[in-house]
Structures are given as structure tokens and as C-alpha cells.
Simulated assay, not measured.
Amino acid sequence: MYFGETTCQKYVLQAQLRELQGKGASRRLRKENLVPAIIYGATQDAKSITLRHNEMVRNLQDEAFYSQIITVDFGDHQERAILRDLQRHPSKPVVMHVDLQRISDDQEIRVHVALHFINEEISKGVKEQGAGISHVVSEVEVSCLPKNLPEYIEVDMVEMEKGQILHLSDLKLPEGVTLPALALGEDHDSAVASCH
């Protein structure tokens, strides 16, 4: 089991500063196919911005977008950030608001990263012992410097046997990546998958 390589996919969002605030202004922006957003952190003031709705929706279809570093392009300069919060319309395919957190190269970030389970069908438990595999979680929170951020965690299930439970502590982490939950003690060494 190991973490996937850091991603080579580059995510860029075109952004503009936003001066008008409030529900009315936000409603007008959405009619213009723009999404109200905020970017904050890294010892700088928070900025109200707008993003292109179509560009946002297209990126959201990619699983890695939720956990990877995003370049926010203002035209005259760029800032790097991660997606922190996303509000969607309850019944329409519309993004209502986006929160982005700036990152800096020398500060660790905490991000939820997807799990990719592989070799389930050829695992000992499934192939030889007639068991099934259940996924308990589909993502885990990691802590690392931006340069070490993995795109996903690959979990090789080939050795799983009937009755076995895979925990967070069983995951092999690359250099510079930790699981904050494990620092809280054994009670937080949650199950990741089970073979039953």
C-alpha cells in the first residue's frame, strides 16, 4: 500500500476581484455565469473574488481537484490555494459559493485525499476464501508540505484475508506525509477496509 505520486495535473482558475457584496450582488454574478468566492490565508487579507462557473464545474468533475493545489490567476499575478469549501444549489447543478485557502511552500497543509483500492478481486480473501471486501472510508486527511501532497492514496488489497481489518496505521506513507488522526492516539486508528 502506498500513496500515489504527486499529481502532474495543473488546475488553474481565472479570477477577478469582486467589490460588490451581498445576496443581490451574488445573484447578479450567477446570472452572468460567475461564482462568488473568497480567497484567504497565508498571512494575507481575505479577498472577495469571482470565478467562471463553467470552468469551476468542469474542474469539479475531476476527483483530484478537491485535494490538489489550484493556481488562481488574476491576470497580473497568480496565487496558489486549495479548495476549502463549496456550496451548491440544493436542486440545480449550480455552484453558489467557493472558499479557497492560500498556501505557502513552507507551511504544512491538511487536506482530504481520496483512497484508490486495487487488487480486490485477486486478494486472498476474495479469490481463495470466498469473502467480500467493504470500504469503510473513501478518503483520509493527510498533513504535509504542498510539494509532498499526493493526488490519491493507493491501497493494495492483494494480501487481505477473510476476517482481516485494514487500519490507518497500515497505510505506507511517503516521506513528509503524515495522518493527523494517528497523532491523537490508538483510539483514532480507524478502519479503512475489511474482508468478511
Rank of each mutant, 00 (worst) to 15 (best):
H112A: 06
E5R: 13
I49D: 04
E128N: 12
Q9D: 13
V137D: 01
R102P: 10
H135M: 11
V137R: 14
A15N: 06
K127L: 15
R110M: 12
H77N: 09
D156P: 07
M56C: 07
L100E: 05
G41L: 07
K162S: 12
S123L: 03
K10I: 10
V142Y: 04
H89N: 07
A193D: 04
L166P: 08
D76W: 08
K124L: 14
R88D: 06
S194H: 10
L83F: 05
Q101V: 00
Q164M: 14
L171A: 02
I69M: 06
I133G: 07
L60E: 06
D156N: 15
E154T: 14
V126I: 10
H188Y: 15
V158W: 05
R58Y: 09
L51G: 05
L173G: 05
V140N: 06
Q107M: 11
S138P: 01
E186N: 09
E120I: 14
D106V: 03
T50M: 02
Q107A: 14
T6K: 14
T71R: 05
F65L: 05
Q9K: 15
R30A: 07
H188R: 11
A193Y: 05
V192P: 07
I122W: 01
L173H: 00
V94C: 01
K147V: 14
E161K: 15
A37F: 09
K172I: 15
D99F: 06
G130F: 04
V95C: 02
I38N: 11
V158E: 14
K147F: 03
L166N: 03
A114F: 10
E120L: 11
N54C: 04
P36N: 08
L51V: 05
L29A: 06
E55R: 00
Q101L: 08
K172V: 15
A81G: 05
Q164W: 09
A131K: 01
P93A: 11
Q16W: 07
M157D: 04
A64S: 09
E139V: 00
H135N: 10
Q101N: 02
L182R: 05
Q68W: 00
S194N: 11
H97M: 04
G75P: 03
N59R: 02
I49P: 03
F65Q: 01
Q87L: 11
C8P: 00
G176V: 04
L60M: 13
I109C: 00
L184F: 06
D156A: 07
H77L: 02
A42V: 00
N59E: 04
V98R: 01
R52K: 14
A64H: 11
P146V: 01
H53A: 03
L171Q: 08
E19Y: 11
G4T: 02
E79G: 02
D105H: 06
K172E: 15
S190A: 15
V12R: 13
L182W: 10
R88A: 12
D106F: 04
E63S: 13
D76T: 13
K31I: 04
D170K: 06
G132V: 13
C144T: 00
A114P: 14
S123D: 02
S143L: 01
D106S: 10
Y40F: 13
K147I: 12
Q164A: 12
I82E: 03
L182I: 07
K127S: 13
G4W: 06
Y40V: 00
S104M: 08
Q61R: 15
H188D: 09
E79D: 10
K162A: 12
P174S: 08
I69E: 04
E19N: 13
E175H: 08
A131H: 01
G132E: 12
